[in-house]
Amino acid sequence: ENVVSAPMPGKVLRVLVRVGDRVRVGQGLLVLEAMKMENEIPSPRDGVVKRILVKEGEIVDTGQPLIELG
């Protein structure tokens, strides 16, 4: 699984990683606000951040690609 998608609609509050960062399974990639709750979106696997597909403040839909892992 190379693309991390939004599990719910919401607003991207914070991106916690940068392109080139090594991440571990379960590590927070970004914080999504949904229904006034902050939800940290975890990495599904170990890898390297290849691309960040959203910006802070952006509104996303369920299933929208957020981050690509390499």
Rank of each mutant, 00 (worst) to 15 (best):
R51K: 13
E56A: 01
L13E: 04
L66Q: 09
M37N: 13
P44K: 13
G26P: 10
L30A: 09
V60H: 03
R45L: 00
L16E: 13
L29I: 04
V48F: 10
V15K: 07
D61C: 14
Q64I: 09
L30I: 04
P9V: 07
L29R: 15
M8P: 14
P7F: 05
D46H: 07
V31R: 00
D21Y: 14
L29V: 02
G63C: 14
R18A: 07
P65T: 09
L32G: 05
Q64E: 09
E58N: 10
E33L: 08
N2C: 15
E33I: 02
L66Y: 10
V3S: 04
V15H: 12
E56D: 06
G47T: 02
V19M: 03
L69G: 04
G47I: 09
Q27A: 11
P42I: 06
L69C: 14
N39E: 09
V15Y: 11
K55I: 03
Q27K: 04
V17C: 14
M8C: 15
D21K: 13
V60T: 05
A34R: 10
K50S: 07
D61K: 11
I67V: 08
L29K: 15
P9N: 08
M35C: 14
A34V: 01
L29A: 09
M8V: 02
E1Q: 15
D46K: 03
E68V: 13
I52D: 01
N39P: 00
T62L: 05
P9Q: 11
D21E: 08
G26Q: 13
L16W: 11
E56S: 12
D46P: 03
S43T: 10
P44E: 01
V3I: 07
P44M: 02
G70M: 13
L30V: 06
N2L: 09
G20C: 14
K55C: 14
G47V: 13
E33M: 00
R51P: 06
G26Y: 00
G47K: 14
R14F: 08
Q27M: 13
L13K: 02
I52S: 11
V25K: 01
K55Y: 03
D46W: 13
K11H: 03
V49E: 15
I59F: 09
P44D: 00
M35Y: 09
V23R: 07
K11Q: 08
V15M: 00
E38G: 00
G10D: 05
M35S: 06
R22E: 13
I52Q: 01
M37F: 04
L69D: 04
V3D: 01
G47P: 15
G47M: 05
G20T: 09
V25I: 10
L16K: 12
E58Q: 02
